[in-house]
């Protein structure tokens, strides 16, 4: 019996400490909606560039990286540009010597809810356009071949 009384203050202390701990765990979560930029990097055959290095350069200092990261397994990377720095944000994606640089215009007008999208130059073509361009190029080479292999007029 005596022993149990002796234990009481200890119990009180632990309880106090415990409640204090709970207080310390109280957290505060705020949220606000903002606009982010999603990068999706893929090789020209369509396979995503997974785990590629991403470097973001802010418009006010294009020489030093503003943010570094890597793409996920689907070649995607999301970042939130600083709204106070309007201008063209440069994003470099590279892996094993392959990669590209994309230029993202970001400014006050983007603060509205419109969503802009763009891509590095080569992804802008549809497969059909690519085939036509390749065919035109090949025809140029074939034409050159035909020109130089024509029969010389006999005179």
């Amino acid at each position: 019996m005596n022993k149990q009384i002796w234990l009481l203050p200890l119990l009180a202390i632990t309880t106090l400490m415990w409640s204090e701990k709970v207080l310390a765990h109280a957290s505060h979560v705020q949220y606000r909606q903002t606009q982010a930029v999603e990068i999706e990097a893929s090789y020209d055959d369509g396979t995503p560039m997974a785990n590629a290095q991403v470097i973001v350069y802010a418009p006010d200092d294009p020489a030093t990286p503003w943010l570094k990261g890597t793409t996920d397994s689907e070649g995607k990377f999301i970042f939130v540009p600083d709204a106070s720095i309007p201008g063209n944000w440069d994003v470099t994606v590279r892996q094993a010597g392959h990669g590209n640089i994309v230029n993202i215009p970001w400014g006050e007008e983007n603060a509205a809810s419109d969503t802009a999208s763009g891509s590095s130059a080569d992804a802008g073509y549809t497969p059909l356009q690519k085939v036509v361009m390749a065919a035109v190029g090949v025809w140029g080479f074939v034409g050159t071949a035909l020109f130089f292999s024509r029969h010389k007029p006999q005179n």
Partner: peptide
């Protein structure tokens, strides 16, 4: 040899657009 060179240039030009899948990449 220009016709020969020109035709092979065409093959070289197109070859880089044709992807041969070899896992994990192509």
């Amino acid at each position: 040899k220009i016709p020969k060179a020109s035709l092979l240039t065409a093959a070289f030009f197109v070859a880089s657009l044709i992807h041969i899948p070899i896992p994990p990449t192509s």
